[in-house]
Nucleic acid binder design. Structure first.
Length: 444
RNA sequence: GCCCCCAUGGUCUAGAGGCCCAGGACGCCGCCCUUUCAAGGCGGAGAUCGCGGGUUCGAAUCCCGCUGGGGGUACCA
């Protein structure tokens, strides 16, 4: 099996493209085949080196490695020209100056469902000669066989008047030359497939196996775009998702195993993936489920690994160890981490509501009592802190909450933080006492 | 307009004629645990399997129509 992922570098790699890449990769790895990367950069204006780098970067982050390429379509111009000449010489294509309005006029005369047929001219764009009878049948692993009646098809333009190739010619030739056996791509290419098949036929080539993946939609059912939140791989990374979680989630968007399990590590995905089981209808990208899944992956990561990921993500070196242990049960993305533990390092945040609710007279009394006990704790670790503060709870015959919350608000400024003992341990005795004192002074 | 594809709870899906008056997951609601928030555990609401016809002893599963959604229809990819 030889498959390819062939993005056009017109911007960041979107989630839909990422899933296409994933499915190609999974199919190749499952079958022990070869995964080829081809960059379709024939659209000169939009295909910039920066855009190419963005795509390579996204694939790297997703850890989808390819075996061959990247092949740049733009560098195959000579071969494309050669094939165009061959088709022209063989009578499979002809030159024509017919424009869009000519095609429309033709349909007005012959019927809307009648494909355009042009007259050969000396110059002009190159059009494929489509037969009037018969049908071109696409064999697709996901959709089965579909017969496209040739009468309905226009004589497709396969090269510009200047001789440069158009998509339907270039893909067909490039896939053929690369020995691609399975073309796995988005459904938006489905209707154009017969044109490519006709090119292949004219070249006397076999048709590859196709697998057209249903498109991905946003939560509102519309085409996925910026306003749906994280829409590109870069944005997913910036939002603090783990690549292994993204792979798992994306794999399940449009594909399901018989077991119907949800958390499936990549190695297991490779083992189970089958193109035949890909869903036919489009799926919606639901970030809530990704968040949940990401949390699961975060909690399965050893603390040392998670620490490394957080340090990379936050561009911070070292000193996060204890905080990671304290926070890992409470975060779903890497981005959730700092808002939770940041106040421990950066100082209390300013949450007026929290202060009002917990640092009233009763709260301050708790603080004063806690301060005394904490000043005397023999060892500054969670065990001793636990013991000491429980004593305060008993002495005051208060609910634990009414002792812990004022302390929390005093040291981090708000009602949410890691466990109070872990928080204090990370703070250290001196800083804890300083913050308690500050709270007592400021709220008087 | 024309051509093509698709259709299971809000979302992702399992289901390939009787095992299904439809199972799992996310989300939502409640309870438990509990120092906050989470995590975790338990439970619940939520689908006449888009609608209407067939075929069959029997249909989510097969056929037809309709409706809805999507894609294509560029000298873009």
């Amino acid at each position: 099996m030889r498959v390819r992922f062939a993005p056009s570098p017109t911007g960041a790699l979107h989630i839909g493209g990422a899933r296409t890449a994933l499915y190609n990769w999974l199919a190749a790895r499952h079958a022990g085949g070869t995964f080829v990367l081809r960059i379709e950069d024939t659209d000169r204006e939009r295909s910039t080196p920066e855009n190419v780098e963005q795509i390579l970067d996204a694939l790297r982050w997703l850890e989808l490695d390819y075996d061959e390429g990247p092949i740049f379509q733009s560098q195959r111009a000579d071969r494309h020209r050669e094939v165009i000449e061959q088709l022209l010489a063989g009578g499979h294509a002809y030159r024509s100056n017919a424009a869009a309005e000519d095609v429309r006029a033709y349909k007005d005369r012959h019927g809307a469902d009648r494909g355009f047929r042009g007259e050969p001219e000396e110059t002009g764009a190159v059009r494929l000669r489509v037969p009037d009878d018969g049908a071109t049948v696409v064999r697709d692993l996901i959709r089965g066989e579909t017969a496209f009646q040739n009468v309905h098809m226009d004589d497709a333009v396969i090269a510009r008047a200047d001789g440069t190739p158009l998509y339907n010619l270039a893909v067909a030739v490039d896939d053929l030359d690369a020995g691609i056996t399975h073309v796995i791509r988005g459904d938006d290419h489905y209707s154009n497939t017969p044109k490519q098949l006709l090119v292949l036929q004219a070249l006397g080539a076999e048709q590859p196996v196709y697998a057209h993946l249903p498109l991905l939609h946003g939560p509102d059912g519309k085409k996925l775009s910026k306003r749906h939140g994280a829409a590109s791989v870069q944005e997913l990374r910036d939002a603090g998702y783990l690549p292994e979680a993204v792979r798992n989630y994306l794999a399940l968007l449009g594909w399901g195993d018989v077991d119907d399990e949800t958390i499936i590590p990549t190695a297991e995905l490779v083992k189970r993936f089958e193109l035949e089981r890909v869903q036919k209808n489009p799926a919606r990208f639901d970030e809530k489920k990704l968040r949940w899944m990401n949390g699961r992956y975060i909690r399965e990561l050893p603390v040392a690994d998670l620490t490394q990921r957080l340090e990379d993500y936050l561009h911070r070196d070292g000193k996060l160890g204890g905080a990671v242990f304290a926070a890992r049960e409470k975060i779903q993305t890497l981005a959730d981490f700092w808002p939770l533990v940041g106040p421990i390092y950066d100082g209390p945040v300013d949450d007026a509501r929290a202060r009002e609710q917990w640092l009233d007279e009763a709260g301050r009394a708790v603080l004063a009592a806690a301060r005394e006990v904490l000043a005397e704790v023999p060892e500054w670790d969670t065990g001793h802190l636990d013991e000491a503060l429980r004593r305060v709870v008993e002495q005051r015959s208060a609910k634990p909450k009414h002792v812990f919350q004022p302390i929390r608000v005093a040291v981090v400024g708000t009602t949410v933080s890691p466990g109070i003992f872990e928080t204090l341990e990370l703070l250290g005795r001196d800083e804890t006492l300083r913050r308690l004192d500050a709270a007592l002074v400021n709220t008087r």
